[in-house]
Write a protein that binds this DNA or RNA. Sequence first.
DNA 1: GCTTGACTCTCCCCTAGTTGGAGGCCGTAA
DNA 2: TTACGGCCTCCAACTAGGGGAGAGTCAAGC
Lengths: 274, 274
Amino acid sequence: MFSIGEFSKITGLTVKTLRFYHERAVLIPARIESGSGYRYYDQCNVEQARVIVVLREFGFSLEQIVEILRDCRDETDLVGFLEQRRAALKQAICRDRELVRCIDRIIQQNLEIKQMIQKKTYEVEEKRVPELLVAGIRVTGRYDECGKVFGQLGRKLGRHISGTPLCLIYDDEYREDHADFEPSVPIRKPVQIDGVDIRSLPDQLCLTLVHLGPYTQLGRSYEILIRYAKERGYRLTLPSREVYVKGPGMFFRGNPKNYLTEIQIPFERQSDTI
Amino acid sequence: MFSIGEFSKITGLTVKTLRFYHERAVLIPARIESGSGYRYYDQCNVEQARVIVVLREFGFSLEQIVEILRDCRDETDLVGFLEQRRAALKQAICRDRELVRCIDRIIQQNLEIKQMIQKKTYEVEEKRVPELLVAGIRVTGRYDECGKVFGQLGRKLGRHISGTPLCLIYDDEYREDHADFEPSVPIRKPVQIDGVDIRSLPDQLCLTLVHLGPYTQLGRSYEILIRYAKERGYRLTLPSREVYVKGPGMFFRGNPKNYLTEIQIPFERQSDTI
DNA sequence: GCTTGACTCTCCCCTAGTTGGAGGCCGTAA
DNA sequence: TTACGGCCTCCAACTAGGGGAGAGTCAAGC
């Protein structure tokens, strides 16, 4: 016979926990002194406690443990319970993995933003933009409908999204009302979803400029790019792209003054056409 | 402005939850009618609620969410919190996977038991027992010390264990007191742990018999095996093995009448030696 | 036999994130 | 006027215990 303190040391369960288990009829002491109310545990209780500890590690609730202790005399009786628990664990693993992937994507994006800020080259560059598989929805309307369309894309593609959202611009002039553009997101593998165009953007030579500030001031950066092309006699082609490196994100609207947008306009050099 | 009911439909949070979030200063309504105490929410609250829902999905506590909403204006500010969350999720995934593996082992064992019971061939068989990598502790003493030694093996090898425990018997006669035996467990890969012998049991031709009942009656089954060998002139060799297919398990002591033990004794046929 | 200190008892409150219910106020429609 | 829906506050419950108060009990030392 062990007092509750001794039994606590043997089983690794706290005294509080043992009293609680008694109250819930999970682990009932072998003897209860009628005068003092002291609890005394025996060898059989030690084994019960061992079982309870293991079952709790497996994540069973106390209610289920009571049931198991009542109904199971044998490991075979336990199989049903274990299978149920296994399914729940599998599901939890799945969900957690999905969350980790999601967190990774956000962290990765912010790493890219930091790198872009560190480079501090808010200047025109000529560079090859590699091939990119994207899913997009082409729209004719106002640019501020962009947000809604990205919302749709997010809901429809979910976990297929693999990078920073961008927008293809098909107009060769600025239009307020009937702009022709295609909000898009990079994806890993081609998928078939109705209402969404899947397309592989070709590897292209582009003029690029990282625009810092609100979208309403994108015009200035376009002006810089166009002037740069004109000076060198480059011919710009369509569609151009706006890559929303940093904008209103999944969590916060953020400060538009800190938005980062990389403009990419495909071009051909005079020398290419000679 | 939305009433609490409308806002509940918009955000997918229950009215109860919204009141609770107000109390905890997680999500404070834009206006509170001073007379009636009615809560009214605005567009800004809708965005806050969206953030809160996502953060809760990630598994942040309300306390942390308050902190995040207070300190973060921007997704970059969130990275620290997210990394912390990521680590916790990774750990949870690891633990859950370990549990699933453990459950699988138990289920697998019980499947084997069921198959063995279904076959119902509690008769002597001659069969090749395949090679097996085991970890064991050799002991001289009484058989009932077996349990303690298995306990040691369990603690020392833990997750390396890959199958049903067994015991190698080095005596050619029954001994009560100074028996020479080696409780062992199958393992996946060789590991170095002091006090434990790692050994690969060779592929061998054995006489086998599944014994149903308590260990105290194992003698009967040995008798059957030995008589069988004598009748055919087979020469039995050492060590023999007892595989504890079903015995006192991780959870329950079980009923000894239902214990299943497969006895395996290596042998040579006369014809082999001619 | 008495004191002392360690141990144990019950009872109540606390955690997080809700859910449920009771009882009451407010506004509108029939 | 009454009924109903929506809203309010306050209270209790769930898990699996933890913390502490105040009182009773046990065993050892003197």
